[in-house]
Design a protein around this nucleic acid. Structure first.
Lengths: 142, 142
DNA sequence: TATTGTTATACTCTATAACTATA
DNA sequence: TATAGTTATAGAGTATAACAATA
């Protein structure tokens, strides 16, 4: 009898939950939510995206992003700018927004390093590479 | 400048979401919820556990498991049996419950194989091993 | 007619606390 | 006093659909 194979979700679920806890806490330490931090990260990487594009990139929803953007804009961390297509808002982070994003990300990466410390550097690279390939593949499928 | 490192959650979140969708659908095809299927899996592997132990094992919550167990028991898939400690219920799956669990799991594994098909067998093994090690480590930490 | 952003609504999930019965 | 199970409730998170403005 083969050793009973366990569902992948049985190991991915705890990891996702812990990573989410890490991001929740790191973001909260700087006064934003995890999703607001995620929005700042995507818009920092790709300035000029519109709201729908950011929502899809994050697998977030187009209606919930509205209130997050309202708050980020109100706090001067991000701006909505009109483009040629006057329906769509081009999003850009401010200097303050970029600085906050970098601080949160630094904390997140430190805590991720602690979490993965039990794996050899090689194993860590393999894990990150496999996860990124799968994520990219799923983005292409959808 | 190093290539901007992305948060682990950015690749784990889509994977967790897709795996959850797979389990939701596979379980629904057999008339149970994802959590009910997960409960059947744990109790099949470790008969005699009590409710709190199963909840902790799944990172589920001790109150929500009650209604799930009610329904599983009502449908003859699982039984609560009194033990020496008359507060605690010893859980056991019935033959029907074990059969249903195996069918759902078979479907889940087939769909997981499709999802991972883009990785070489070696990469798949590395990924599974790393994820299991991390999950085990997080269980030990908590 | 389709798309972007927005708003409203309902539904699910989750966390918390209290209660009982046993220990 | 502490623990297992149960129940109730409130809050957060989520999905869905409708609407106005623009293309």
């Amino acid at each position: 009898m083969p050793p009973s194979r366990r569902d992948l979700l049985a190991s991915v679920h705890p990891l996702a939950k812990e990573l989410r806890r890490i991001e929740d806490q790191a973001a909260a330490d700087y006064g934003v939510t995890m999703w607001q931090y995620a929005i700042l990260s995507v818009v920092s990487d790709s300035p000029g995206l519109n709201q729908g594009q950011v929502a899809r990139n994050l697998q977030y929803s187009a209606n919930r992003i509205v209130a997050d953007l309202d708050e980020l804009q109100e706090r001067g961390l991000l701006v909505r700018e009109p483009g040629q297509d006057r329906r769509a808002n081009q999003l850009h982070v401010t200097e303050a927004g970029a600085a906050l994003q970098r601080k949160v990300q630094h904390d997140v990466h430190d805590r991720e390093d602690d979490l993965l410390a039990g794996l050899s550097p090689t194993r860590q690279r393999q894990l990150r590479a496999a996860l990124q390939q799968l994520a990219q593949q799923m983005r292409a499928d959808s």
